[in-house]
Amino acid sequence: AVSDRLIGRKSVVMEAISPQNSGLVKVDGETWRATSGTVLDVGEEVSVKAIEGVKLVVEKLE
C-alpha cells in the first residue's frame, strides 16, 4: 500500500503534537495528521512509526 512506504520515513512537525491532540507533519512534501505519545514542537524531526486509519503515529528522532 502507498501508506506502507511512509513507515520509517523522516518527517518534520508542522503543527505541534501532544498525547491529547493530534498535529500535522510533512512527509515527502505531503502533509499528514499525526499523533504521538509525547509532546512534539513545530520544526522537530520525527520518524513515522505506524499508521492508524488516516493518521500517522510518529516519535522524535534520537
Rank of each mutant, 00 (worst) to 15 (best):
D4I: 12
V39P: 11
V48F: 00
A50I: 04
S36Y: 00
M14Q: 07
V42L: 06
L24H: 06
G53A: 04
V58C: 02
D41V: 11
S3T: 12
S11Q: 01
G53Y: 01
I17R: 00
V57E: 05
I17V: 07
D4F: 03
A16V: 09
V42D: 01
A16H: 08
V46K: 01
E52H: 11
G37K: 13
I51R: 07
T38W: 09
I51N: 04
R9M: 14
I17L: 04
S22L: 10
A16C: 11
S3N: 12
T35M: 09
K60N: 05
V12P: 02
E45I: 15
S3L: 14
W32H: 14
E59K: 03
V27K: 02
G37H: 14
K10P: 08
A50H: 07
V48W: 00
V2R: 12
K26D: 10
V27T: 04
S36T: 03
E30H: 07
G29M: 05
D4H: 14
S18T: 13
G8R: 01
G29C: 12
N21S: 13
D41K: 12
G37Y: 11
V48E: 01
I17P: 02
V39W: 15
V58T: 02
L61G: 07
G23N: 01
D28N: 09
W32Q: 09
I51E: 02
E59I: 09
W32R: 09
E59G: 09
I17F: 02
D41G: 12
E45S: 09
K10S: 09
M14N: 04
E59T: 08
V12R: 07
L6Y: 05
S18F: 07
G37N: 15
W32P: 08
G8N: 06
E62L: 12
R33I: 15
V58Q: 02
G37S: 15
S22F: 07
D4S: 13
G29A: 05
D41M: 13
A34R: 00
R33M: 15
E62K: 11
I7K: 05
V57K: 04
G37V: 11
K26A: 11
M14V: 15
R5N: 09
K60T: 06
P19R: 05
K60L: 08
L56Y: 00
T31E: 13
V12L: 09
A50C: 09
L40G: 03
V46T: 04
V39N: 13
E15V: 11
K55V: 15
W32K: 09
S18C: 08
E52F: 10
A50T: 06
A16N: 06
G8A: 02
V13S: 01
